[in-house]
């Protein structure tokens, strides 16, 4: 089969599945939040209804916006969010473009949807959106540090253990780092798990890290001027990003497949692994997004930076030191 055709086909299928699963995930998220607040909550498919409505509504471009940037950015956000998925393995399915990029590329690609939001916010010419865009930039700078520390600590430990190509996503998925390390390394990985659990809501701009959107003080912040189709596209890109970010966290820290434990092979193994992967994604979203956003109020932007740089950055430094001590004690470096 032609590799280019396979990549294009894979992209289209992946995009449709990711949008559908992302919207279902946000539907489950809203439903679980409602149940935790002793409400009934919206139907599971409510996000689909919302997006369909937004796509049918009037699309207003404000008088003092920059029209081409304002209209381009929702498309860039959705396209780049889908691009991330091309580099991520799902269960035992290898990534569509796995051989062309590694975990460092995914780190960069994760920035682009947020960057598109920032540019779109600045291009809409509203003071609320400008303040929101500045906050989004600050929180991007903040959560990158713990995320990069987690990635580097894991990839370095795999490299020290002599695993070939430790930065490839497929290697991270196939070689669970938990099986490689000793007791100190397990401690370091538990710390990294806590860090990733805090980075995920920050990356997705959910409460308590939603100061760029801040419904109550900035009236929707970055998205304040967006309506109709553009807002719908941003909603879709947020849903896809939720899929991408939870999958990324799973590949880094919870990478086990189900089929080796059940002794499955062939197509049954692929389906079992995929279902198990989707369940793990649901688990990650509920633990690190839904529960956290029900329990907490919004952080001020200074508190966001303080948490990510001082608390999680310090924990990350500790995790790296533990990781090095672990490699040293096992005598692999």
């Amino acid at each position: 089969m032609n590799p280019i055709l396979a990549a294009v086909g894979g992209t289209i299928v992946l995009a449709i599945l990711a949008i559908a699963f992302g919207l279902i995930l946000s539907g489950i998220d809203r439903r679980v939040v409602a149940r935790m607040q002793a409400r009934v909550g919206p139907p599971l498919l409510q996000p689909f209804t919302d997006v369909r409505k937004l796509l049918a509504k009037q699309n207003i471009i404000p008088a003092n916006a920059i029209p081409w940037l304002f209209n381009l950015m929702p498309i860039v956000a959705l396209a780049s969010a889908i691009t991330i998925l091309l580099y991520l393995p799902f269960g035992s399915f290898a990534p569509v473009l796995g051989e062309f990029g590694d975990v460092i590329l995914v780190l960069y690609l994760l920035i682009i949807p947020s960057l598109a939001l920032v540019i779109g916010g600045f291009a809409s010419g509203s003071p609320y959106a400008t303040v929101g865009a500045q906050r989004e930039m600050v929180s991007m700078i903040a959560y990158e540090l713990p995320l990069a520390i987690a990635v580097i600590a894991i990839a370095w430990r795999l490299m020290a253990a002599g695993v070939a190509e430790p930065f490839l996503m497929l290697t991270l998925m196939q070689t669970p780092v938990w099986d490689v390390v000793g007791p100190l390394g397990i401690l370091a990985l538990l710390i990294l798990l806590v860090m990733m659990a805090w980075v995920t809501p920050g990356e997705l701009s959910k409460i308590p890290f939603d100061s760029p959107e801040a419904e109550t003080e900035l009236a929707g912040g970055i998205l304040v001027e967006y309506s109709g189709r553009n807002l719908g596209l941003f909603t879709l890109s947020q849903a896809v990003k939720m899929v991408a970010m939870s999958a990324f966290g799973i590949i880094l820290l919870l990478p086990w497949n189900l089929s080796p434990f059940l002794g499955l092979t062939g197509a049954a193994a692929g389906v079992a692994d995929l279902v198990f992967f989707l369940l793990k994604m649901l688990f990650v979203v509920i633990v690190s997004v839904t529960v956290v956003r029900t329990m907490m109020a919004r952080f001020r932007i200074t508190q966001v930076v303080g948490l990510y740089w001082l608390v999680l950055g310090g924990l990350g430094a500790l995790a790296i030191i533990l990781m090095m001590a672990d490699a040293f004690l096992l005598g692999v470096i």
Binding site: R39, G41, P42, P43, K57, I60, L218, G220, L223, S227
Partner: peptide, 21 residues
């Protein structure tokens, strides 16, 4: 409030007139 929970029917309070129906 949770007692009436209009989100059951998709009703949501938004912060910007641009998002509103």
């Amino acid at each position: 409030t949770p007692r009436y929970d209009p989100e059951r029917f998709g009703v949501k309070l938004v912060g910007s007139p641009r998002h509103a129906d």
